[in-house]
Amino acid sequence: MPKIAVVRRDLPPTLSAVVRLGAALAGIGIAILSISVILGVDAWTVTERVVGTFLRPDMIRYLIVFLPVGLGLAVAYHARLWNLGAEGQIVMGAVAAAYVALFTPLGEIRVVGPLAALLAASLAGALWALLPGILRAYLNVNEAITTLMMNYVAYSLCNYLVYGPWRGRRVYGYPETDLIPDASKLQWVHGYSFSPWSLVIAIAFVPVIYLFLYKTRIGTALRGYGSSPAAVELSGISGTRLIILAFFVSGALAGLVGGNEILMYHRKLVPGEKIGAGMGFVSIMVAWLADLNPALMPLSAYYVSALHYLRMVMQVGELTEPVARFFIGLVFMLLLVSIFVSKYKVVIRK
């Protein structure tokens, strides 16, 4: 009687990446086919739309969000610190950037203004992440719950500001601040909705985080901390400090992105839900799709950004919004299968 069993396996990182990449592409293919078979939508129309979206730079607007946040989360997740609070950290970054741009004289100065705003944003995000970090490090409070709750606190705080003291004079009662000064705005590339400078900053973090995690003692300790905290502690590296560092870094990157959303996109502070827009949660997926490897993060962020953008622009004719969502859901499900395939193999024996 033949037996089928599922067995763990270790693929070398490159092969694993290739398997996932192949599966990601195949997943899109299968999703296109399913849609055309199940819903009778012309396969060519869908393919054109999907391939078009993947090849167009429009999705960079989201890559700029997902890449740094994913990198930051990877730092925390390597240490098995479940920071689920990127959403809130993005919002707090946005609040800080809006503050610098709107209420300090720096906002009126070119180059210096945006830089100061982004710096403040990173700091705000980092500090926001630090609170659950400290609770975890010193009191062993479950960080998954605290970070998750802090998201809603950040929403509320931001909403208090835009409904209350920071509400703009020229917004007719809507919960928004006034626009930030022109000097603070990061201008869009013509025909697109992103700033090249934001892109450069986002990509610059890839080698930085990679080298930190894989080539430094502290980074190595971070990666080992999750599975063997005592072993790391005995090497002379304080676990408490590692936790705090991990939260600081991931919060800072999320905060930076939040600041960038204000300077590059919204140009004003709006309610928290509209700044984060769930992207902090999507970033968790970005981090894991790359298997927490910073070197693979651009690929993963590119893939998720394109799909994220695709969901909005795919709707043409029969490809209604629900169909687009179905499509994206299908792609992600197939991607999960591919992750499974890269980690396990099926053995059949007689």
Partner: peptide
């Protein structure tokens, strides 16, 4: 070595995206 390859892939993608972005900036659609 494989990790470095991964890093390289990442950087190449980055560079490509960068070039596309620069192209887009200099030559309006």
């Amino acid at each position: 070595k494989t990790l470095m390859t991964g890093l390289l892939i990442g950087l190449i993608i980055g560079v490509v995206i960068g070039i596309v972005a620069l192209y887009a900036t200099t030559k309006p659609s």
